[in-house]
């Protein structure tokens, strides 16, 4: 897939909470959105911030071809993401996309029992993945973890695609505790896709190995270029250190040394 540098215009900035925004953007020149695979990401230029320098890698949440809108779910993490949370309608945001490899889709004719596990802002790429799985005839089920009910993001969007199971640390919604303790996990799965904080993904990877499920996780190591040039975002794999930006961000857990 050819990578492009594209100016996008913010069409809508929906504040989901003081910490999260869902940005909907369209190419400023009116062109169609480039081809994108679920799990790929964009490198967003942060303009108008005093202390940021590098672009920020952000997962692609949804590619809505009907409205020509790209959705990005952004969590306030520092000065760079603060600029994005504050980006008003009409603002131009420069991006490089599509980057990374994305999740692998089942072969035609396969119908694996599939669970998508997301934690916090890590639910972002699972939306587009869920949509494409459903389009491929596979009904995805979701397991979403969050600190509390207020941190659950876009649950209604996921409910449109399949059953949604919820875990919260404080028990304010769904089952209390971490996702790996949720009763849904014990039902047996052929395939698990997971994106969230590293400790959560490592725990999910352990469970996936125990139950014999094929498992892919999406990593978010700190990046500079996002293009495989700087070699900063490396992850230790069975093949040695590899760039998360080009060899990932999605890895089958068999490739990792977890």
């Amino acid at each position: 897939m050819k990578k492009e540098i594209v100016d996008f215009r913010v069409i809508e900035n929906c504040a989901l909470s003081p910490l999260y925004s869902l940005l909907k953007l369209t190419p400023a020149d009116g062109h169609e959105l480039p081809e994108v695979k679920p799990g790929q990401f964009v490198q967003v230029e942060i303009d108008g911030s005093k202390h940021t320098f590098l672009r920020r890698p952000i997962s692609i949440c949804r590619v809505d071809r009907q409205t020509n809108l790209l959705w990005l779910l952004v969590r306030l993490a520092g000065e760079g993401t603060a600029v994005l949370l504050a980006a008003g309608e009409g603002r131009i945001i420069n991006m490089i996309l599509p980057l990374g490899n994305g999740f692998s889709m089942p072969e035609a004719g396969e119908n694996p029992k599939t669970l998508l596990i997301g934690g916090g802002v890590g639910v972002a790429p699972l939306l587009q993945l869920g949509i494409e799985l459903k389009n491929a005839g596979i009904t995805p089920e979701f397991l979403i973890g969050a600190r509390s009910e207020a941190d659950l993001l876009m649950i209604e969007e996921f409910r449109k695609l399949g059953d949604v199971n919820i875990s919260t640390d404080d028990g304010s919604a769904g089952e209390k505790g971490v996702v790996t303790l949720h009763s849904a996990l014990s039902r047996g799965w052929d395939r698990i896709y997971c994106c969230g904080p590293a400790p959560m993904m490592k725990a999910v990877a352990r469970v996936a190995k125990e139950i014999g499920a094929d498992c892919e996780v999406s990593l978010e190591n700190m990046m500079a270029c996002g293009l495989g040039a700087c070699l900063c975002c490396v992850e230790k794999t069975v093949k040695g250190n590899v760039c998360v930006c080009t060899e990932g961000p999605v890895f089958n857990i068999k490739e990792l040394t977890w």
């Binding site: 202390h51 700190m222 070699l231 992850e235 230790k236």
Partner: peptide, 18 residues
């Protein structure tokens, strides 16, 4: 190369330890 993390953004620049 070195272990991760190898990069941190700093004012008007970055540190690397690839």
């Amino acid at each position: 190369g070195n272990d991760y993390p190898r990069m941190v953004e700093t004012p008007s620049g970055m540190l690397n330890a690839v």
